[in-house]
C-alpha cells in the first residue's frame, strides 16, 4: 500500500468524522470506491486507526497525520482561490496535488501569508498549525470580535468571518469592509455602531462575525 493511498483514507475518515458519520460501514463504502477492501485492517496494524463499537476512530498518530493533510489541502484551496484566483473546476484537483508536496516550512509560510485563515473556501475548519498558535498568542490581545469593543471605543475592521453570503454582502454594502473604522455606540437592546456618519443597528449574531483590530 502506497503512502498516497493511506493519505487518502486518512482524509476520508477525517472528513466523515467532521460530519459525525464515522461508523464503519459508511467509511467502508467510501473506501470500496477507492478499490481497496483490506486497507482498514492494514492501517490498524500500522496503528493509524482503531475500531470502537462499530465506529472508526483515528489513533493519536493517525489523527496527527490526518490533521496535517487536511490542513495542507485546505490551505492550498485558500491559496489557489484567494491569491492565484484559480477557477473553481480546477481548484479541487490542484489542491489534491498540493497536499502531498508541501513541506512543513512551506505550509507555515503559506498559512502566514494568508493570515492564518480559520476556514477553507467551502466553510470547513482548517486545523491550526504551530504558526497559528503563535500568531494567536500575539493577536489575541489586538484582534477580537466587535461585541467585545467598549461603548465609545473605535476599532478597525480586520476581517469578517461568516459563511452567510447575504450577510457578508449586506455588511459590505453598508461600508463595513476590512480597514474601515467602527465606533461602538450602544449594546442594548440592540447593537448600534457608527460607520462614517451612518448609524447602523444590528444584532449580536451579526456583530460577532465582525473581527476588529483594537487601537490600544
Amino acid at each position: 500500500m502506497s503512502n498516497q493511498e493511506i493519505d487518502e483514507i486518512l482524509e476520508i475518515i477525517w472528513m466523515k468524522k467532521e460530519k459525525g458519520k464515522n461508523d464503519l460501514c459508511a467509511i467502508e463504502d467510501d473506501i470500496k470506491r477507492e478499490c481497496r477492501k483490506n486497507l482498514i485492517a492494514e492501517m490498524q496494524t500500522k496503528d493509524l486507526l482503531q475500531i470502537i463499537s462499530g465506529k472508526v476512530e483515528l489513533t493519536s498518530s493517525g489523527e496527527k497525520e490526518a490533521a496535517s493533510l487536511i490542513r495542507r489541502h485546505r490551505l492550498a484551496e485558500r491559496l489557489l482561490l484567494d491569491v492565484l484566483e484559480t477557477k473553481n473546476d480546477q481548484l479541487e484537483a490542484s489542491a489534491c496535488e498540493f497536499e502531498h508536496i508541501l513541506s512543513e516550512e512551506v505550509t507555515a509560510a503559506i498559512c502566514t501569508l494568508l493570515g492564518h485563515p480559520k476556514e477553507c473556501p467551502h466553510g470547513l475548519a482548517i486545523p491550526p498549525g504551530q504558526c497559528c498558535e503563535k500568531s494567536n498568542a500575539i493577536l489575541e490581545s489586538v484582534v477580537s470580535t466587535l461585541d467585545k469593543v467598549a461603548i465609545g471605543e473605535t476599532a478597525v475592521v480586520a476581517y469578517i468571518l461568516t459563511r452567510d453570503h447575504p450577510r457578508l454582502h449586506k455588511l459590505m454594502s453598508f461600508g463595513i469592509t476590512p480597514g474601515v473604522e467602527i465606533k461602538m455606540h450602544q449594546k442594548f437592546p440592540s447593537y448600534v455602531i457608527q460607520v462614517e456618519e451612518t448609524q447602523i443597528a444590528l444584532e449580536k449574531e451579526v456583530v460577532r462575525s465582525i473581527y476588529v483590530r483594537r487601537n490600544k
Binding site: 447575504p166 449586506k170 456618519e197 451612518t198 448609524q199 447602523i200 443597528a201 444590528l202 444584532e203 451579526v206
Partner: peptide, 10 residues
C-alpha cells in the same frame, strides 16, 4: 429569517 442589519437615519 434574515439578519437584522439596518441603517438608522439622523
Amino acid at each position: 429569517s434574515s439578519d437584522f442589519i439596518m441603517e438608522i437615519p439622523p
